[in-house]
Design a protein around this nucleic acid. Sequence first.
DNA 1: CTGTTAGCGCTTTCAA
DNA 2: TTGAAAGCGCTAACAG
Lengths: 361, 361
Amino acid sequence: MTRASSKDVARQAGVSIATVSHVINKTRFVSDETRQKVLDAIDALGYRPNAVARSLVTRSTRKIGLVIAEITNPFFTVAARGVEEEAINHQYNIVLCNTDEDPEREGESLKLLAAQQIDGLIIAPTGVRSPDLLALAESGVPIVQIDRSSPDLLAPLVGVNNEEGAYQAIRYLIGLGHRRIACLINFDVISTQRERLRGWERALREANLPVDDALIVRADPRFYGVLPGEAGALSLVGPSGQRQGMRSAYQLLQDLLKSPERPSAIFVASNQLTLGTLYAFRACGIRCPEDISLISFDDHDWAPLFNPPLTVVCQPTYQLGQIAARLLLQMINGEPAEAPPPLSVELVTRASCSAPPVIVS
Amino acid sequence: MTRASSKDVARQAGVSIATVSHVINKTRFVSDETRQKVLDAIDALGYRPNAVARSLVTRSTRKIGLVIAEITNPFFTVAARGVEEEAINHQYNIVLCNTDEDPEREGESLKLLAAQQIDGLIIAPTGVRSPDLLALAESGVPIVQIDRSSPDLLAPLVGVNNEEGAYQAIRYLIGLGHRRIACLINFDVISTQRERLRGWERALREANLPVDDALIVRADPRFYGVLPGEAGALSLVGPSGQRQGMRSAYQLLQDLLKSPERPSAIFVASNQLTLGTLYAFRACGIRCPEDISLISFDDHDWAPLFNPPLTVVCQPTYQLGQIAARLLLQMINGEPAEAPPPLSVELVTRASCSAPPVIVS
DNA sequence: CTGTTAGCGCTTTCAA
DNA sequence: TTGAAAGCGCTAACAG
C-alpha cells in the first residue's frame, strides 16, 4: 500500500490540494471548519508530507552536511554533538560523512552531498585543495569550516587559537625545567597542525632553546600502509579498527625515544596521536611522567582517568560545533554572519607532566 | 547563477532531455557520438544531477537513517563507523540522529527521517514503545535494530549475546572469590540492560549466592534533572557536556558504596556508566581493584590505558554496524535477508579485577 | 476564504 | 538510435 499524498487528503476532505498545503504549512488563512476537515483527513489516511517533493519546489532540503575526519575521534564526536543539537532545534537533519583524512574520500562525500542538495555544509577539511569543495562553494551553498581550513576556500572558520595553545603548553613545560621538548604532529596539510607547530617553535625560540628538526615527529601519509614492524604495531589497534595515523606515529616515535638524545618532554599536537604515544611509551619501557612528560591537545571525559591523568590543552569542542551550526544556519537564512574570532583554549594540568628527570652521568 | 539542469544540458548538446538522462544513468544505448556531445555539455555547464528530483520519481533517496542514543559514546561511534563504511561503499548517505535515550527526541527524529523519505533505517531504539517507529515500519520502510530492540517492532535485531556476556563476567568474579557482586544498570527499558541483569542473576543463583535487590543500582529517568549534590556531581561532567545517565548513577552508587554491606565487586552493564563509576570510587576514596573490582560492558581503544586498565566484556562493535548495514541494504534491494544470531562477546581481562579484600574483623 | 494551474528536475513509457 | 510527453508530490502565483 502506497503512502497517501496530498491529493488523497484533498479528495478525502473535499477541498483542493492547495488548501491542504496551506493548512499544513500555515501559509495562509483557512477557516476553522475546513482546517478541521483537512486535519481529520490527514489523520484518517496517516498522511505524512513528502519532504522530497517539497524540496524540489522550495529548493531547500533542511539537511546540512557534516564532513569530519573521524567519527570515532572524541573531538569530532563532541563537535558533531554540538552541531546536531543546534540543527535539530531548527528542524534540520544532519548528513554525516567521514573522510579518514583522505582527500579522495572527502571528494566522494562532497559529490554525494552536493547531489543531495544539502542546504549548507560544515566541514573539517582534509587540508588538501579540493575542487569539489570549491565547486560547492561556487555553486552558492553556504559553508563553514570547523577546526581547520582548506586552501583557497573562502568560508568562515570556527576554530581555536592553536598557536597560542601550543605556545602555552610549551611554556608550561619550559617552566617545569624541560629543555628538550619534542613535538609530535599529524599531517601538515592540516592547518591546525602547522599552527601548533609554530606555537611550539615560538616558545622554544623565546626561551633560547634549540629548535631541532630531530625533535619533530611527523605522521605523514608516506608512512601509510604496510610498515616495518607492522605486526607489532597492529596489536595496539583497538576494537574500533584501523588507526593509521596512530600507527605511523608509533614507529617514528619509537625511533626518537630510542635515540641517544631523547627528549624529556613531548607535545602531542593531535589527539589522534595521543593513544599511540602512550603505547609507544610502554613499548619502550618509558614511564610517564617520570622519564618523559606528556602534554597533548584536546581534552575529553576520560583524560582524567588515564594512567597518568593527562595534562592537556583543552578546546571548547562542543561550542565549536554549536557556533559553527549557528553560523551556518544564519548564512542559510541569508542573515549577516561573520566568522567568530578564534576561541581560546585552556591548559588543564593533571599528572602527565613533571620536572625532567635528573641526568646521572 | 542557478545550477544547470538536464534541460540545459540537452539544449547545449542538441539532444533531448531523455537522452541526457540515459547517458548519465547508462540506461539505454546511446551512440558514441551523441554521448560525447552530452558529456561535453555536462562538462561545459558544470552540470550535476539533482538527486532530489531523481528521488521524487524513483522513490529512492539513497539515504539511510541512523538513530543512536549518543554520538559521544564510543560504542555507538564505532558501530556508526561500521555502518558508514558499508553505506558509503554502496553510495548511500547516512542521516544521523541522537536520541539521548529520550523517547520524545526519538519520535521527533523519526518523523523528520520519515518525511525525508529515507530508504531504510538502522536504529538503537530507546526501548519505549514508539508509534512513530511502528508507523515507519508499517509504511514499508526497511528497518534493522542494532544493539537493542523496541517493543512490538518486527524488525531484525543485530546484537550480541548480552546475557551470556554478563554471565561470563560474573562467573569470572565469582572465580576470583567474590561473593557480593553489585550490578549497575542503565534504564531497564533498554533490552540489553534487562538481558545483562538476567545474566548477572543467573550466575549468582547458580553459585548459590544471594540475589539481593540492594545490589542492583538502576540509573532511572526519575533521577534525571536536578539532583541533590548536583553541584558536586557536575564537576565530573567533562568537556562534552551533559551526561545525565552518569550523574544519576553517580548518586545511587555512592549510597551503595557507603553502605555497611558494600559489595567487593561491581558489574557495570553499560559503558555509559563506567566513567561515573570510576569517579564515584574516587569520591568515596575507594581503590580499584584493591577495595572493589570493576568489570564493565564494552571495550574501547582507551580501556587499556585507564588506571586501572579495565577488564571488560568486549563486543564486536564495528561488525555490529557493518552487519546491520549489510542486512539493511539487502532488505532495501528486496533480497532475502534474515537477522543473524546474536554475536558472541569476549571477556578481556585486564587489571580492574582482583581477589576480594580480606576482611579484618 | 478557497481553487486552478504551472512548474521544480528528473525518469520512463510509448512512438518513431 | 532517439524524442515527446506524462507524471513523481508538492508550493505558490494568480484568480475568483
